[in-house]
């Protein structure tokens, strides 16, 4: 469409070279501030990280010293804890992202129904996102506490057995996924809701006339139309999720064992606790590369689905 527009511009007016030049350069004026800010802020840290990952890092001056080749990368790739954190991150993403998407889409559909209080309900859904991660983590730790927490108390009220939500190796990651889902599903809800509200109402009405019930309308009419929105919400959420660790940090500290140690938390601990900046940098580089590759695949996939 933009190409057509440009062609139209060229043919309809007397083509002056200056005008052409402006057409070529104008877009860059728009992206320049963003590019300048991002490059200024990110280029040196990225360079520093890359350099640190390839050097013998001197903690006493906080700077990369001599060249070390790919030694740190080799160590990282042989590190059981690194691979364990990759597995934990993958498990967390595979559980949390689909769950949040499914819940988010369903709830968005539900609250898209107009009734007198619907606007207030929609606005209230934003609240879980607002709670500062440190507080959210501590808050859930208290709620899930086996001794004073409400969750186990409610469980026992309905005849269940108390559960060690955060102390049990098998449950801890599930608990983390629950907390994360509570926190970020609202984000999906709001984006999808926005999508639903702005959908072309005609196909839905047509389906109604044809006698489709609400479930059929949702599955066969609305959902396909929403596909681009869902993918876009997914992309933003996915890039937030791979660097998540603040909640885990306060709720479990990565434990028990390394049951909840996600990659970003391992990078944090390696850098700030073990003061091994070179290894943390190598892991950061690997993580950014992986994020880039997957994001690229997702975008490709989304284009493919749309066609």
């Amino acid at each position: 469409m933009t190409r057509l527009e440009a062609l139209g511009g060229q043919t309809s007016k007397v083509t002056a070279p200056r005008r052409n030049l402006r057409r070529v350069f104008e877009p860059y004026v728009f992206i320049l501030p963003t590019v300048i800010i991002l490059i200024t802020l990110l280029i040196y840290p990225l360079f520093y990280t890359l350099q640190a990952s390839l050097s013998n890092f001197d903690t006493f001056t906080f700077s990369p010293a001599t060249f070390a080749g790919f030694r740190h990368y080799e160590r990282v790739l042989q590190d059981n804890n690194f691979w364990s954190s990759v597995r934990v991150t993958a498990a967390y993403l595979l559980a949390a992202l689909p769950l949040q998407l499914a819940l988010g889409v369903s709830i968005a559909f539900l609250i898209s129904v107009q009734w007198p209080g619907s606007k207030i309900v929609r606005a209230l859904f934003i609240i879980p996102m607002v709670v500062t991660p440190v507080v959210a983590g501590s808050m859930w730790k208290m709620l899930l506490d086996p001794l004073w927490g409400y969750v186990n108390y409610l469980l026992t009220l309905i005849g269940g057995k108390p559960v060690l939500w955060l102390a049990d190796t098998n449950l801890a990651l599930i608990s983390v996924v629950i907390i994360d889902t509570w926190r970020w599903t609202p984000f999906i809800i709001l984006i999808i809701l926005a999508g639903i509200v702005s959908l072309d109402p005609e196909p839905v009405e047509a389906a109604k006339v044809d006698g489709a019930n609400w479930l059929q309308r949702f599955v066969y009419v609305i959902l396909p139309m929403l596909r681009p929105v869902i993918l876009s919400a997914f992309l933003v959420r996915w890039l937030g999720a791979i660097k998540m660790f603040d909640i885990i940090y306060t709720a479990t500290g990565g434990g028990p064992g390394n049951a909840t140690e996600v990659i970003n938390m391992y990078i944090y601990d390696t850098a700030f606790r073990s003061l091994s900046f070179e290894r943390a940098s190598a892991m950061s580089v690997l993580m950014v590369l992986a994020a880039f590759a997957f994001t690229f695949l997702f975008i490709r996939f989304s284009h493919w689905v749309e066609r």
């Binding site: 990225l46 520093y48 890039l239 944090y268 943390a280 940098s281 950014v288 994020a291």
Partner: peptide
């Protein structure tokens, strides 16, 4: 631009 969000903050803050 989108992927730049994936950089671990710890790798940014020290430099």
């Amino acid at each position: 631009i989108l992927v730049s969000r994936a950089i671990p903050p710890i790798a940014l803050v020290v430099p």
